[in-house]
Structures are given as C-alpha cells and as structure tokens.
Design a protein around this nucleic acid. Structure first.
Lengths: 150, 150
DNA sequence: TTAATGTTGACAAAATTAGTAGGGTATAAT
DNA sequence: ATTATACCCTACTAATTTTGTCAACATTAA
C-alpha cells in the first residue's frame, strides 16, 4: 500500500463532492457516514484542500463543503499531492548529494517511476472519474438484467 | 517519498552486485561503507532477497553476496516487491469490501496507478540500469572535456 | 435562541520504519 | 589448529508517521 489513508480517503471524499457538484454543500457528517471515515480526520484533510483552493466551505446549519472549481478542472494529482505531499521516490534529485556514480544509476529509475505516476494522476480529472463511474454502473446493470433473464 | 529506505537502499545495493557480476562475491562491509548504509540493516534486506532466490552468499573469509541470476534476468520490480511488499494503492481490489458504488469509482483510478507503476518497474532489469549508468558516465565525460577546452 | 455546522489546536494510540545488539556458524588464509 | 573474515539469525528499540480523538470555539439557518 503506497498511498496512505490520507490520499485514499481524501480522493473518495472529493469524488463525493463532485457527485454533488452544482447542488449545494455536502456536510462532513454525511460523507464520513457514507464511507465510514472519522469525521474529525476528514476535517483535517479537507482543511488542507481548502487552503490549496480546491474546495470551499459554507458555515452554519445546512452548510458543508463543495468543490471550488468544475470537476474537469481538478485532477487526481492535485488532490494526492496536497494530501500526500510530493510524489517522489528518491531524495537523490539533488545533484550535490549524488556524488558517487553508482548512486546516480538508481536515480534514473526513480525518476522514471515518478514520471509515470505523475503522468497518470495529472491526467485524470474528477470529471473523468465520474465518466468511469457511470460506465461501471451501466455494466453492472446489464449483468443484473442477464441474471434475471436466466 | 513513496519508497522507504528498504527499497531505495536495497536497489542500490543490488545494483552494486550487478556491477561486480562475474567477479566473485562482494562483502556487506564494502557496500555499506560505499553507500553509508547500516551493515546490519542491509543484512536484513539481503536476507529477504536471498530467500526469494535473487542473490546467493559465500560464507567465510573473502565471502560475500552475489547475484543468483544474470543482471538481465532480474527486474527492479522483483527487488522492490521483495523489500517493500506488494505495490498496491488500495485495499479495494476485493469486490466484497467494495459494495457501495461511489467507492468503486475511485478503485478504477487506483488500479490505473498501480498498473502504470508495475509497467515501469517490471520492465527495467539490472542490465538496463547498467546501460543507463554507462550513458550518464559518458555524458559527464564529454561535459568535462568541453570544460577543459574552454 | 438554538441546533447544526465548520475551525482550530493539542493530544495520543498504533503501526511502521530504520535501525542496534549480540550471539551464532562457516571458511579461507596463516 | 588458529584466527580473522564474513554471513546467519533473533530479538530489541528509538524515532517517526499514520490515524485518528477531544474539546473549546465561531458562524449561521431556521
């Protein structure tokens, strides 16, 4: 498990916000119950996301959290980097640390891994996730109908 | 930093073995001094790698560790998986945990990330690392020569 | 006003990481 | 044979990170 609960919980919760995009704020309580995540813990995650400008809050009764931008403008990478910190595989990017030649050989690998991860997470938006989600639901529906026919 | 020292140290140390492939065993002491890694700690990492059949040992004076296979037959993925455990981004592969639809939406993303990482680390061998290493050295040599000319 | 909600900061249990310590065993060199 | 060098193995531990909990407070809708 290379992602901690921060990234996993946070991504799920933000996806939930995107499901409710345009329909007013969603309360923490609702999200934490739906996904069975500690309310206070989620709060800390959302606090960071708010500071970085990805979500907004509405205080008071009927308040809650909502996306600050359209789902298509928020990438998975933005969320994960905010919550998990930089997705680096090595401290060895700094040339000065890396004096001895044989160490540099491994740095190339670490860079490749990093780039391939960035490539994925920076090119998936919340809107993409929603599309994928719809497809999964549609597939399941078909399966269930086939089951009922037989 | 998504890789712990286990993976980072281990990969560096195994690369060192590949540099010495065909030239007899390399002692832990030598490696731990070269990379400034705790000898006892490295020992634990190598112990796992030995159990999984990637390296062999020669006991006694002048003994040490050596690759059990050719560098081209050992992938970065083998080493990292041995030392870091499975490279999974989510516990959610298990369908039963994943009853609620909205959770499944994030699973797709986690699967993509996982696959892209696997794709990288399973397709780079120690021999590839050595090639890359040679290129870096060659480039640096050219740079130095240019510096001396000016 | 009151109940619902977000805000903040301090605290803490649990797990993981990153080693240490130390007693073994095997073997090459002398 | 002895000794130095090296791997082998088990336990322990300090530090850090993760994963929360708790409590007091601020804001706002009804």
């Amino acid at each position: 498990m290379i992602l901690s609960t921060k990234g996993r919980y946070g991504l799920k919760a933000v996806f939930e916000l995107s499901l409710n995009y345009g329909e007013g704020p969603v309360s923490l309580k609702k999200i934490s119950e739906k996904y069975d995540i500690s309310e206070n813990y989620l709060e800390q995650l959302f606090s960071k996301l708010k500071k970085n400008g990805y979500i907004e809050t509405v205080r008071g009764a009927q308040g809650g959290y909502l996306l600050a931008k359209e789902p298509k403008e928020i990438t998975v990478g933005m969320i994960l980097r905010t919550l998990e910190g930089e997705i680096t595989t090595s401290e060895c990017l700094n040339r000065e640390v890396c004096v001895r030649e044989s160490i540099c050989a491994t740095r190339g690998i670490f860079e490749k891994i990093e780039n391939s991860i960035s490539n994925v997470i920076d090119n998936i938006t919340l809107a993409d996730m929603y599309e994928e989600h719809k497809n999964i639901i549609a597939e399941e529906k078909i399966k269930n109908e086939q089951k009922n026919l037989s």
